[in-house]
Structures are given as structure tokens and as C-alpha cells.
Amino acid sequence: MGRLFATRLAAFFLTLFAASVVLFVTINVLPGSAAKSALGMEATPQAIARFEAQRGLDRPLVLQYGEWLSRTLSGDFGVSFQNSVPVGPELLKRIPVTLELATLAFVIANLVAIPLGTLAAARHTRRSDKATTFAATVFGAVPNFWLATLLIMLFSLYLQWLPPGGFTPFSVDPLMNLKQMLMPALSLGLVSSALLIRIMRASMIEVLSSDFIRTAHAKGATEGLVIRRHALRNSLIPYLNVAAVEFGFLFGSAVVIEDIFRLPGVGSLVLVGIVNRDFPVLLASALSITVFVLVVNLIVDLTVAILDPRRVKGGRT
């Protein structure tokens, strides 16, 4: 087990390093000069050259990467090209917003997926199974940004129950925070539940056809008892494996939803970085999302290895 942990950790750091190279190279070939974006279209060539020299943008990419990496590893994400504000504190302020959004969306997705997936599996091939599968197919086709727009129209404009956007920290006003987060979380969570319903259904069907379930039935246990006591726990292990990976992707998919609801999260910072050609902002925000996704995947990997060693492949993943 120790060796497995070491291998997974080594693979994690290697992937992280490679991801940072890919992001750095991709972002640093952005068209449209960062200098022009920061100084304005009327900037003189001399001003542009001075701007690039001050920020080391005129040096070879490898040197720029080396310097950026050593700074980042010491916790310094650089300063914004636009307003010279340090990126690190801005990022730290925004991570909890995206984390809260992803967590709420994840909770909603599971609250929908686990009961519906279980119901569909318990009524396998019957009408309720077909209806649930159909609903999952339909929900899986709804773009989350369209659902977000429809929710705003219904709950903010028509019923006027919820605010159409903005963010109040939970510590300042918990109720307002939840009101503002409900629609963004529903937009992400309901669409995400479509995949999870299918996973839960498949996992539960597999468990329900196991010998120990047949034995429980033979002993006279009711359907509900068999599912609650025996099947649910066993079907949740493979389900949570996929669900946890989905949690990482919810964090990464927040870009569009944060833009719609004007949430000051990491996703909207990515867009700020793109619009302003602000390399340090874009790089730090994109990298933090990638790190989060990779960490979640690593935790899932290790948890599965502990809970169910049979599922871990010996060699490469």
C-alpha cells in the first residue's frame, strides 16, 4: 500500500509539473500584446518595450517559466499587469466562492442522483426505471448556462424570490449567501446529476444482482430493507469514485456560471485574465483550478485504494 501511495504521489507531482508547463506555454503565446492591453492601444513602441522589459516578457520562454515556477513555489503568484495588485491574495479571496459553489452543486447533484438512481435500479426495466433514465437523458442535454438563464427568468424576474446575481459571504449574511448561491448551484448540480443518476443506477443494478442480495431476499428481508442495509453501501463505493471526480470538474466548470451570476470566484478570474490579457491572473487562476481537479482525483484514487484494493490496477492507470 505504501508503494502505491508513493507511485500515485509521484504521478501527481509529475502531472502537475507538466500541466504547469502546458498552461504557461499556452497562455504566453496569447495573441494581442499584454502591454497594449495594459497601456492602451495608443501606447508608443518605447513604452511597450519598457513594459515588457520590466516584466521580463522579452526574455526566452524557458527563463520566464523557470522564474515563474520558483516564485510560484514560494507562494508568490506575481502581480496583475492591469492594476499591479498581487494575484495571490486575490486568488485566495476567490477560491472559497468557487469551492462553495462546487460543494453546493455537488450536494444537489447527489441529493437528486442517489435516490433516483436507486429507485431506477430497484424498479429495473419497469416504467419508473424508464422514466428516470429518460429524465437523466433529457437533463444531460440541458446546457447549464441555459438552465441558469431560465432559473433567473423564473425565480428572479417572474416570482422575484431570489436575487439574479451577486455574492455576500456566508460569514456576513448566511441567508443572503444561500439565496444568492441557490440558482448557480442548481444550474450546475441538476445538469451534473444526469450523469450521476446513470452511474448510481448501473452500480445499484450490479449490486442487486449479487449473491448476498439474493441470500438476504431468501431470508425474507423486505425490498426496502435489502436496499438500505445491504445494497446501498456497496453500490456507493463505485458511485462515489465517479462522483468525487465530478466534484473536481464542477469546480472547473464554474467559469460560465460565475460569469452569469456575477460571482467573484476563480472561474470569473479566468475570464478577467483573458479579457485583459493579464498573464499572471490567467495563469494563476487556471493553474489553481487544475491543481484542485488533480488533488480531488488523487484523493479519489487513494481512497479507492484503501476502501477497495481489488479495484486498483497494478500498473498504469
Binding site: T15, A18, A19, V22, L23, T26, I27, V29, L30, P31, G32, G248, F249, F251, G252, S253, V255, V256, V270, L271, I274, L282, A286, I289, T290, V293, L294, N297, R316, T317
Partner: peptide, 24 residues
């Protein structure tokens, strides 16, 4: 395949957004 796994580790929308920013 390691390179493919690497690309796979980025959320699709993030990768697409960053690539779009880079390509124009």
C-alpha cells in the same frame, strides 16, 4: 498516453477557454 492523461486532467471548458484565448 501520459500526454493524453495530462490533457484529460484539465476540465474541458477550462482547456477550451484557455486555448481560445491563446488561438484568438
Amino acid at each position: 498516453m501520459r500526454f493524453m492523461e495530462l490533457l484529460f486532467s484539465f476540465p474541458a471548458i477550462l482547456l477550451a477557454v484557455v486555448l481560445m484565448a491563446s488561438l484568438g
